[in-house]
């Protein structure tokens, strides 16, 4: 016999909750409590308000102008039950953006939206650190960065229209998973205006250190933004052929059509 190889452990092969053991037929105490802790964290990620002051400070440290807006959903429970309200701006926010409209059309409006995970917004500054200098080499013009609360993806359409932007990039906290309560999604929409459908956007999903790291996501987003501006479109017709590895652009799980936001 030569040296024996270490038996393969299921837990080396997947992040799924495999090889948990049994107490009788049921879940052992340790596994049951670990699950409960992860669920508690995911629930907190949904319900804890985003640290807007901290985010705004981080953006200003980067010499980025910011604007704060709110959706028509006045609180978290309304937000969860009324997705239609989360897609509309509150009237004061609409007026604010109308006053902030740039003198000339800009290439890009960035919107950072709390969505369903406030924790995910922690990765937005790092993503912009990688993205904006890249776009600046091509001379892209930028609207002030909009921070939106109680916001869903389609809110970016009205923001983009009011700020007269050719494209919106909306960064949003995604539906938190038990093992990924901090996942950020990026939605790119050409010629934003209310009424755009999800089929008219491109999405880069699962942005977080343990998923698609923010710097890698920025490279993918930059590629999509350039293609969108050049081809004057986003959506199903714009296929992700960016050179940064396998496609993580949304569309793969058409089998279960439910919004990620």
């Amino acid at each position: 016999m030569t040296a024996r190889t270490r038996p393969v452990r299921l837990t080396d092969l997947t992040a799924a909750r495999v090889a948990l053991g049994r107490s009788g037929a049921s879940l052992p105490t340790t596994a049951a409590l670990a699950f409960a802790l992860d669920h508690a964290r995911a629930r907190d990620a949904v319900h804890r308000p985003a640290d807007v002051d901290g985010l705004e400070g981080a953006l200003r440290d980067r010499r980025l102008a910011t604007l704060r807006v709110e959706s028509a959903a006045t609180d978290r429970l309304t937000y969860l039950a009324r997705p239609d309200l989360g897609r509309q701006l509150a009237e004061p926010s609409r007026n604010l953006l109308a006053r902030a409209r740039p003198r000339a059309t800009v290439d890009l409006a960035v919107v950072i939206a709390d969505g369903l995970s406030s924790r995910a917004l922690d990765y937005a500054p790092a993503l912009l650190d990688a993205l904006l200098p890249d776009l600046a080499t091509d001379g892209w013009s930028l609207a002030p960065v909009v921070i939106a609360q109680q916001a869903r993806v389609a809110l970016g359409d009205e923001v983009g229209l009011l700020l007269d932007a050719r494209l919106t990039l909306l960064l949003v906290g995604e539906r938190p998973g038990l093992s990924s309560p901090d996942s950020l999604g990026a939605y790119i929409t050409y010629a934003p205006r209310p009424g755009r459908t999800d089929a008219e956007r491109n999405c880069v999903s699962n942005i977080r250190p343990a998923g698609l790291p923010p710097a890698d996501a920025a490279a993918k987003i930059a590629w999509l933004l350039r293609q969108a501006l050049k081809g004057r479109m986003t959506g199903v017709a714009l296929k992700d052929e960016s050179p940064t590895g396998p496609s993580l652009v949304d569309g793969g799980d058409a089998a279960r059509l439910a919004p990620r936001e």
Binding site: A16, L27, G177, L178, S179
Partner: peptide, 15 residues
């Protein structure tokens, strides 16, 4: 689903 946690679809089912 292993441990009731679907790590692809991000929801909880039965284990």
């Amino acid at each position: 689903v292993p441990g009731a946690d679907d790590i692809m679809l991000n929801y909880q089912s039965t284990s």
